[in-house]
Computed example of a mutant assay.
Amino acid sequence: MGKKQLIMEKAVELFAQQGFELTSVQQITEHCGISKGAFYLSFKSKDELIIALIDQFMSQMISDTDYQVTKNQNDEKTLYEFYFTMFKSSQKHSNFAKILMKEQSQSFNKELVSKFHHYDRLLEKTILTMMEGLFGEKIENTKHDLVYCIKGFISIYSELILFNNVPVNLEQLAHSLVEKTNLLATQITTPFVTKEIFQLKRLSHEEVTKDQLLEILEQSLSEAEELLEQESLSLLKQHLLEPSLSQVLIEGLLKNIQGYPNCKWIAYLLRNYFALEFTENK
């Protein structure tokens, strides 16, 4: 295990016990058995460490969920895979999931709050895309409200699982929430969250930048082992620098890479980035 990963894993143990605010760099280094100098070679500050942990957890959870949604798009299994993958990820990383649920309501650190909002927005986009694909025009007036209902399900049941030691059958939970979601999607007629409210909330947060995408793309390229993976990433990078590919070809390249574990996150980000770019240029 590398030094950076060791620090992250040991820090999570302390954060789970004490929270972000009460855990010091000194405590983290003592828990890891390293010097402060070794810590600062990996992270500039405790806040940078926290951001890295949030990125690691949230990017994996959202990209895994998005992969299941796009793989089964418009299929009857889509909703089930969405819920099952979401709760499976939270259960697998339960310590950090607990920390996030507590800290999101307590943090006054602007950078952390911004990061929480960023991933919340990405989750909303995945849910909205899924619901539009499954129900189409039937939910045109209620789809934004449904996004918040689904987020509510995730929050409430995650809290039940993580903080109350309730024995959980994830398959049963996923099936139960699929039934509830289908019922809401087919029966809701009076939404509260309108398109205007939804867009107003989202406008207050920044989109991922081209430079950030290029950085993540380079990392994915360095880890790519298969020829198809390498060639697809290279073409996507080239298009990002000098747009020349059609939307259909871009979608094909994204499908080529989204099945590779190290490419799920960049595939998710690029799909959203190019979709926005295409909409703006129409």
Results as ranks from 00 to 15, higher is better:
7 I>G: 03
10 K>N: 08
13 E>P: 02
18 Q>M: 07
19 G>A: 00
22 L>R: 15
23 T>N: 00
25 V>D: 04
33 G>K: 01
36 K>E: 07
40 Y>G: 02
41 L>F: 15
43 F>N: 00
44 K>P: 11
48 E>C: 11
50 I>K: 06
58 M>H: 11
60 Q>M: 14
60 Q>G: 15
64 D>C: 07
65 T>K: 05
68 Q>I: 12
71 K>V: 12
85 T>E: 00
90 S>N: 15
92 K>T: 10
93 H>R: 14
109 N>P: 08
122 L>C: 06
135 F>Y: 12
138 K>C: 10
141 N>Q: 09
145 D>Y: 08
148 Y>K: 08
153 F>Q: 08
154 I>E: 00
156 I>E: 15
156 I>K: 15
158 S>M: 06
158 S>P: 06
160 L>I: 15
160 L>D: 13
166 V>A: 12
170 L>K: 01
172 Q>E: 14
177 L>Q: 06
178 V>E: 07
183 L>E: 07
184 L>Q: 05
192 F>Q: 03
193 V>L: 03
196 E>V: 11
198 F>G: 01
203 L>N: 14
204 S>I: 14
215 E>W: 13
217 L>E: 03
218 E>R: 15
223 E>I: 11
230 Q>C: 11
231 E>D: 10
232 S>F: 10
233 L>S: 00
238 Q>A: 10
239 H>S: 02
242 E>T: 11
245 L>D: 07
246 S>A: 02
249 L>D: 10
258 Q>Y: 11
261 P>W: 05
261 P>V: 04
265 W>L: 14
265 W>E: 15
271 R>I: 02
279 T>M: 14
